[in-house]
């Protein structure tokens, strides 16, 4: 017998009706994205863990309100975004901004090293404007389209497009020094 994967709505309905395995599947499938976004938002693991836990407890309590109009990942992104902001508003957590001036581009060897590069990327994320980090996380971690991210953030699609691009442009300038030193064009003013 061939079983097809459950749709988002079926999974959410199953979880809402008390199917623990369905909710566990939602956590399993999305924990990395939620944690990754919170980690990039706050810049420290403890805050990211607290945010992730709060997101899924909130999702658990409200899963019955998911109506399937948006994808589950869009809904989860929105909850994550709001939980992070709520934690800051409540004074419970403060994101750790990173000064881009303290950031040195990676040597070529480190650029190729997964572990070193991932660590540097995490740090470099801290230099981005929060709205750029938000848009980039929505697209790259939650897999949202620009339109889905725009709807979740309440901004035009073009704004998401430009924020994602600006974020990448800033990261490129930070992570890899142009051959022959600083250049103009893309890297100017970053």
């Amino acid at each position: 017998m061939v079983t097809r994967p459950m749709s988002d709505l079926e999974l959410a309905n199953a979880a809402a009706s008390g199917d623990e395995s369905a909710f566990a599947a939602i956590v399993r499938e999305n924990a990395d994205a939620v944690y990754g976004h919170a980690l990039r938002f706050f810049g420290d693991r403890t805050s990211a863990e607290d945010a992730t836990q709060e997101v899924f407890i909130k999702v658990f309590r409200t899963i019955s309100s998911f109506d399937g109009r948006a994808r589950l990942s869009t809904w989860l992104y929105r909850v994550t975004h709001n939980v992070c902001l709520d934690m800051v508003r409540a004074g419970r957590r403060t994101p750790q901004p990173v000064d881009p001036l303290t950031f040195d581009p990676l040597p070529a060897a480190d650029f190729a090293d997964d572990v070193v590069f991932a660590s540097a990327l995490g740090q470099a994320m801290g230099t981005l404007a929060p709205e750029e980090r938000d848009a980039l996380g929505a697209v790259t971690l939650f897999g949202l389209s620009y339109q889905e991210a725009a709807e979740a953030l309440g901004v035009p699609t073009g704004t998401v497009k430009s924020r994602v691009f600006r974020a990448r442009r800033a990261l490129a300038a930070l992570l890899l020094e142009p051959e022959g030193g600083a250049s103009d064009g893309l890297h100017a003013g970053v």
Partner: peptide, 21 residues
């Protein structure tokens, strides 16, 4: 050269491991 560098970082970010819970 500038755009080539941008594309190189774009590809590198895409291939880097995302944070794991």
């Amino acid at each position: 050269a500038d755009c080539a560098l941008f594309l190189r970082v774009l590809d590198r970010i895409a291939s880097a491991p995302d944070p794991e819970a």
